[in-house]
Design a protein around this nucleic acid. Structure first.
Lengths: 341, 341
DNA sequence: CATTCACTTGACAGCGCTTTCAAAATCGTC
DNA sequence: GACGATTTTGAAAGCGCTGTCAAGTGAATG
């Protein structure tokens, strides 16, 4: 319809040079009050909005921060993104989100896309793409990784202490008298899955409890896989009184399996998760889990990126998640009902 | 570090003109095979990636589609966004997401931002911003609204038939013998909340059931509000055997309240939601709800936008959501236990 | 009143790419 | 081998904005 109005139009209309308008827009230099007013009036009247692409081209920064996430529809990433958006809010920067779906190839494409769009910085949320690719990017622009380690960039990673997280779970359960504890882990192509499983094993030993490999199942962090794994565990006939899941989503799935079997939580079996997704507060019973302040982590990442962009050298440290005890865990029953049929 | 490599560099290195490189990049015109090869080799060697901002500036399209969403961390919007991303995948367009948090002012700011970034089209997911603002935008670029009506743009809205959705719920419950049905609605500043509540009332009448205003509570679509509303209902002492919630999230909250009161679902009270969020499959028991194919709606919106961008004139019609019967609904108990204490 | 200084302002050259236009190269044909 | 028709190619002019530089303004100084 109406050809978009440019800075040039504003300048002509107000009877000043384009430079002056630009200066008013960016506050780059002083401008006499009357001109300023005149220009601002015209801007308002013509409803002028600067073209960000042109600005980007002219001064070499796009004012956008790339965010490489994995799955938009997952609550986990959703909350992190919200945190990032919040953290960037108030700054001139804006997030540009792409998802990699845990596939190295898609992540690479996503990265390429962000580079084409000339993002000024990058936030990486998890992912399986090789460190090399990220290092290459990091050489060009500020980069912050959340929940994954990137070799060579220790100061740029917010690490979650998964080991400590699971340890709290095991201690809690051991304290409740549980001895036969089953575990549903994530696909070990992901770093945190490895750490959590390892944490489980180690903590069991630390508590002097037997580590029973047959009570360990591997899922893929989805609800279905948790449902399936729990069903297998139950079908195996092996007795256990507590079930530790490597993330909340699998715990949700497991919960359903238990329900189908008519097992009560926590009277018959104690159930735990990891992540503390928003929904974990609303399962029946509310889930005992390990709280990762995902939203805050997102904010932290955003703020760190802003600092890096401002030329500072912030230091990121690892984050210790906290156990949240709700109602899905309770004292171990006298005799394990779980596999006992 | 290394100054970014431009098309010009590629041209020089390959001994051709910039125009030729551009043509190869975009397939705009024929180029002799040997030159093409030479240029492609250089592109690869120099690891050249075109600057999207510059392209945008030069040919007047940014190849990005603005998405005005409300809450990134909500499963509902997350799934829709995933659908949009999917729908745009394969096209040269990419989504640029901003959230409005159900505040007219923030939505306006978000809109401004998208306009500054010169998005080529816009997808609006819900929201409370005035129709006028959207109409103004629609005059400038293709616009598709999902789940909200924009007056003057009937062909650009994917409407959800909320009335029909709730009607299916009520019919289902009535069929199970429920007569005293409570309702938890959403804030009526949102169109769909009004439609759903109206649908509830109308369907009750249609079934010849009494409409009892005191069994209607109003929440704000969040889990907490559902929890609270259900608690109030229970505390009121009024008898009811089924509880219809205007969305899944409130049903989750209500579920918790019922659990706290020791009421069984569905034996004591039948519970229903609306939306069919992914999690509804994993509540205990799995929730009977009205399925909105959110992901598909997102895809549909994306595809429609692509068509509009291609100059076609697709026709959008309203979407009739389908009842999904799971396990949270069952025959009405002989005597209502709900408020009976 | 001339001179200096501190500010404000405008002209202009890019930023990296696309695209038009016209020139150059290629082809087929007589 | 010369001609026109056709295709390939390059020069150059933007796209909308920023930032440098030098010119212009007025106030303050001697």
């Amino acid at each position: 319809m109406s050809a978009t109005v440019t800075l040039m139009h504003v300048a002509q209309e107000a009877g000043v040079s384009p430079s002056t308008v630009s200066r008013i827009l960016n506050g780059t230099a002083n401008v006499t009050p009357d001109k300023r007013e005149r220009v601002e009036a015209v801007i308002h009247r013509l409803n002028f909005t600067p073209n960000v692409q042109a600005q980007a081209l002219a001064n070499g920064r796009s004012f956008s921060v790339g965010v490489l996430t994995q799955k938009l529809s997952s609550a986990f990433y959703g909350e992190t993104l919200a945190g990032i958006e919040q953290g960037l809010d108030g700054s001139p920067y804006h997030p540009l989100v792409v998802s990699g779906h845990w596939r190295a190839k898609q992540e690479q494409q996503a990265l390429d896309l962000l580079i084409r769009r000339r993002v000024d910085a990058l936030i990486v949320l998890g992912g399986v793409i090789g460190d090399a690719a990220l290092q290459r990017v990091a050489a060009q622009m500020p980069l912050v990784a959340v929940g994954r380690e990137v070799s060579g960039l220790p100061e740029r990673c917010v690490l979650i202490d998964n080991h400590a997280g699971i340890r709290q779970v095991v201690l809690h359960l051991a304290g409740l008298g549980h001895r036969d504890i089953a575990y549903i882990g994530g696909d070990e192509c992901q770093q945190d899955a490895v750490e959590r499983r390892q944490g489980f094993e180690d903590s069991l030993r630390e508590m002097g409890l037997p580590f029973q490999p047959r009570l360990v199942m591997i899922g893929d962090y989805t609800e279905v896989s948790g449902e399936w794994a729990a069903a297998e565990l139950l079908a195996s006939g092996l007795p256990f009184t507590a079930l530790v899941c490597a993330n909340d989503q699998m715990a949700f799935g497991a919960r359903l399996s238990l329900y189908r079997r008519g097992l009560r939580v926590p009277e018959d079996i104690s159930l735990t998760g990891f992540d503390d997704l928003f929904n974990s507060r609303y399962t029946t019973p509310p889930l005992t889990t390990v709280h990762q302040a995902v939203n805050e982590l997102g904010q932290l990442a955003a703020e760190t990126v802003l600092r890096l962009l401002a030329g500072e050298q912030p230091h990121l440290s690892s984050y210790v998640p906290q156990l949240v005890i709700r109602e899905s865990t309770g004292p171990a029953p006298l005799s394990p009902t779980a596999g006992g049929h």
